[in-house]
Design a protein around this nucleic acid. Sequence first.
DNA 1: CAATGTACTTAGGACTAGTATG
DNA 2: CATACTAGTCCTAAGTACATTG
Length: 757
Amino acid sequence: TEKKQEPKKQRENSLRKGESKRDILEESLGSVMEGIREENGAGERKNCEVRQGKAKEGSSSTRERADEKEKQKKGRGEKRKKVKMEGEEKEGRKKLKKEKKVEEKQKLVRLGEELEVGDGAKEDEGGKGVKEEEMDEQGEDKACGQIQSMETEEKEVGKGDVLGKKQKTKEKKIKRRAKRKRPQRKPRKENPRMMERRITIRRWEEEKTNDGVKWKQLEHKGPYFVPLYEPLPDDVQFYYDGKPLKLSLATEEIATFYAKMLDHEYTTKEIFQNNFFNDWRKEMTPQEQEIIKQLDKCDFREIHKYFVDKNEARKALSKEEKQKLKEEADKIQEEYGYCILDGHREKIGNFKIEPPGLFRGRGNHPKMGMLKRRIMPEDVIINCSKDSKIPEPPVGHKWKEVRFDNTVTWLASWTENIQNTLKYIMLNPSSKLKGEKDWQKFEVARRLKDVVHKIRAQYQADWKSKEMKVRQRAVALYFIDKLALRAGNEKEEGETADTVGCCSLRVEHIKLHPELDGQEYVVEFDFLGKDSIRYYNKVSVEKPVFKNLQHFMKNKDPGDDLFDHLSTTALNKHLQKLMDGLTAKVFRTYNASITLQEQLKALTNPDDSVAGKLLSYNRANRAVAILCNHQRSTPKTFEKSMQNLQTKIDAKKEQLEKAQQELEEAEDEFKDKKNAKAEWRDMCPGFEQLAKLSVQATDKEENKQIALGTSKLNYLDPRISIAWCKKFGVPIEKIFNKTQREKFAWAIDMTDEDFEF
DNA sequence: CAATGTACTTAGGACTAGTATG
DNA sequence: CATACTAGTCCTAAGTACATTG
């Protein structure tokens, strides 16, 4: 528990740390960035140039940052309110819906067996292709027209902006309605159920096609439930107002959740305390409610100590006992951790039901401290195949439902009570199912490579469109492409931490500088993105983008949406027209992978040692992580371990020097000095070791606040790395650890050294 | 069309096991 | 052999995307 305390500050840090992080980053990455910049100079992407700028600028002060945040809060206020349905009502609706869905599915199955449907489906398919083409053309024509008329329309757009302010929602509605009238395509949007049906039928005809169906056979044991609460021993007491108070079992359990976190910074936060106390009181008996009225009169310290001690005791266990514990865990893993999917035994990702506890949101989460209740079998929906051995619920219990839905990949699900959303039990990334999906993802990104030039040309043209909507879309897309921003779905206010992505950027998140440090048209971004990680960047943009942004921001409050005529749905709809399967997030994947490939090309020196090559690889990887803003808090032990490494290096150096001296002395006795020295150098392993160490040190320093894992795992086409390994004779194990190799088995299987993303 | 719901990917930090080190 | 230190694993929150509903 002692150790656990430390992390408490980290989140807070990472919000503020941005600036210093950047500074350091820039410094250490200078060389890498330099390279990137050159690379990109010729091409369309100038990310890295941008990054450089950012690096130099680096820092608004921490104070500035805090002020900003304050402002944000004020600016937003009551705007953007959204009414949430009350829980019960919601529940009811959900249930109804589910019933309907099941019904529908059953109907589908029946329908699917009739050939008639198949014929219809085929026709559909043919028609679809044609329509798509037509649409593409249409889109292009439109764009052309817009370019021509753009200059004259400039003013009007400005006006629209003024309007946009408070009634923007209204305006939005109206505009959309107007837009809809235009002779757009007929809603080719077919019912996805129909699609599924069609596909099912096609499967009979041609062995393998795209799916709605994810499996034919699925058998598993159901999720593993963590043990029930064990009451505290009698000598461990809770005190209220200084006096010991015996709590009811349920109340005590929740008290232990809080007690365990006592030395975590969370528990000092007001929101956390309030949320916890609120939820706790709800679970108390009337008598307890009568007594326990103030959290600050509650004394959990004895309970806390109990758990600290317990933890210590566990650590101090003998080898045999630890071994035994491990074996038990393995047994559970063995029993619950696997399923059978289409005849193959596959590892499950998360087979354990999440234990109850206090919700720990990230960043400034309004729900932190709320009680995450215990999930019982009665809450869990099981999904498996009809003819499989249906999992047994724990004795005395039953499942909420057992369904046989082979159009989804999850094995079990339940609704979590904090945000009222679904949680799933799914397969491990090493599974065939996930692997294929992963592969598919990168194939989509590779297809983007072929059309990205066209798309870029198009959005650049669209910056001058007469339509506000189109302009905003074009600017947003530019950001997504150039800066690898996330799409930025809308979020319910008050339900989650206040974070944004591209489409949900607000006026307060950017600053415009017509000129800054010798660069023109600089946009300064400062916002909290996913997981409340700060994105801070200064980017020099093209003039039209800058002008557009000025327009978008005109007469708006800081808390207003920057792109008030744009939603992720609209953006993605547009992208879908440009390329099949294209969505905003594909740009992140594409740009990440292509950057890795380019960087590897630029940085790898075939004559380097393996260690040197690995450094290059890590640098390329790092460039991507920076692009995607994948940060981590500096490891707790960073300074120390850095020092250790330095000591080692120094020691090695000294040792070598000494050896050298000795050699020289000895040499005096020989004539052929030169030769001997060179030989000695070649033979002495010390030099190589020293080189290796210093490479290690560099790498470590550069990596201080950058997380490489996320991009490696999610954004970089593994085939690029594998091809690189093969080409330069680097063992794959140096790049991918065991888990990663399992996850990327599909790629390891199929890739040779010529692979090009 | 907005609000709601579902399924799946992406994310950082906590935790742990196992190795290196003293 | 105990301890220190990572690298790897686990955990689950927080996104994206798209379907459904009213």
